[in-house]
Simulated assay, not measured.
Amino acid sequence: MGRKTKSKSIVNSSDQQLTSQLIDDSDWIYPQLANQSIRSLIVTLIIIYYFIYLGNYSLIVSLVSNSVKLISGRGSCSIVIPSSWSKLFHPPVNCSKCETIKEIIEVTNITSEQFESRFAYSMEPLIIRGAIKSNWKALDVFSLKFFQQLYLSTINSDHNQYRCQFFPYSTSYKSLIQALQSIPDQVNYNQSTPWYIGWSNCDPRITSILRQFYHKPQFLPINSEDSRLDWIFMGTPGYGAPMHIDNVGYPSWQAQIKGTKKWILEPPLDCYLNCKRFEVTINPGDIIVLDTNKWFHGTQIVGDELSITIGSEYD
């Protein structure tokens, strides 16, 4: 079974932008409004409200400036926004898929048949506790130093040579190579400057090495095809990913290798009044399965250890 893996996109990403004709995407919101300027203004106000919720004030300033120009006749009906904002203007979500979810199910063992029948392609999150404690060498091998040695010895030291996606989040790093070259391998992370980064691994040389230390989770559907694209997230206590939604095309799993991470799940905007918000803590050896295309999610590293997670998509 063939598959095409989409690049990961998050709503707060500042490095992936395009010019989007918002008024063309908002016909389903207010079709009775014929005046394009008014319609564009309404859409802008919706976005401003949403980014106040996310705490992204720099983008709000840009939106307000554009709206003023639009009203005065000096602006255009298109504005520069992150590509993944298209998620804000999709047709309404079927909220019945999350209305019945009252808690996040946690199990210690599950068969591929049980997983496929209820969790694999639904909107229901799942936690498998201790899923990888006995058969993944990654639990003992993966560390900051491991990734520094692996990437810096495999990839050209010129950070522009590594073309896979990199998420600096709140750090100032411009690339994965720069981050791995700059981050000190400190023992006490509570006394160092906090940081959190994430990246995809699209280099087949590194993939062949990484897959020696972990493998496709046994509970995934038998006929599903696991992506060859690894997603790795690493950081120190107190940091994590801000609330966002992905655009990767498939559900995904993420294994906690080191440290402890708290996940905060928010329902789609359409279902905010109908569906519950959840928080769950993932410990070393646990796996979380989540359709990150449907759930807004944020993370926070808790405890006093470096957090390392690795995951992938499945179809």
Rank of each mutant, 00 (worst) to 15 (best):
Asn156Gly: 02
Gln218Thr: 15
Gln165Ser: 15
Phe167Met: 03
Asn188Cys: 09
Gln191Trp: 07
Glu279Met: 06
Ile264Arg: 13
Asn283Gly: 02
Ser200Gln: 13
Pro221Cys: 03
Asp158Cys: 00
Asn190Glu: 12
Ser224Phe: 02
Trp253Lys: 04
Arg205Tyr: 07
Leu265His: 01
Gln181Trp: 06
Tyr250Met: 06
Gly198Val: 05
Cys275Met: 05
Arg228His: 01
Phe166Gly: 02
Pro284Trp: 11
Tyr214Lys: 10
Asn283Ile: 09
Phe278His: 10
Val280Leu: 06
Trp231Tyr: 04
Ser192Gln: 11
Val280Ala: 05
Asn293His: 01
Tyr250Ser: 03
Met234Glu: 05
Phe233Leu: 08
Gln218Ala: 14
Tyr162Gly: 02
Asn156Leu: 07
Val187Pro: 02
Leu229Val: 14
Lys216Ser: 07
Gln181Arg: 12
Leu265Asn: 02
Thr281Leu: 14
His215Ala: 13
Gly238Glu: 15
Gln256Thr: 10
Glu266Asn: 14
Ser227Asn: 09
Gln186Ser: 11
Leu210Val: 11
Tyr173His: 12
Gly235Glu: 03
Gln218Leu: 12
His215Glu: 14
Ser182Asn: 12
Gly235His: 03
Glu225Phe: 04
Pro184Ser: 10
Gln181Ser: 11
Trp195Asp: 02
Ile177Cys: 00
Arg163Phe: 12
Ile245Leu: 11
Met234Trp: 06
Pro194Trp: 04
Asp158Gly: 00
Thr236Asn: 05
Ser175Tyr: 08
Tyr189Ser: 04
Thr292Cys: 09
Gln191Phe: 06
Trp231Val: 02
Glu225Asn: 07
Pro184His: 13
Lys276Tyr: 07
Gln212Glu: 15
Asn247Cys: 08
Ile288Asn: 00
Leu180Lys: 00
Ser157Asn: 09
Arg277Asp: 13
Ile209Ala: 01
Ser252Thr: 04
Tyr169Lys: 08
Gly235Ser: 03
Arg163Asn: 14
Ser172Met: 10
Tyr250Phe: 14
His159Trp: 15
Tyr169Asp: 02
Val280Asn: 05
Ser200Phe: 04
Ile183Leu: 09
Ser175Phe: 01
His159Tyr: 12
Thr260Tyr: 03
Gln212Cys: 07
Thr154Asn: 09
Ser224Pro: 01
Pro237Asn: 13
Ser252Glu: 10
Pro221Arg: 07
Leu176Glu: 04
Ile287Gln: 00
Asn190Lys: 12
Lys174Asp: 13
Ile282Gln: 08
Thr281Asn: 15
Asp185Trp: 11
Pro268Cys: 05
Leu269Glu: 11
Lys258Glu: 08
Ile245Glu: 02
Cys164Gln: 06
Cys275His: 01
Pro267Ile: 09
Thr236Tyr: 02
Ala241Pro: 03
Pro267Val: 06
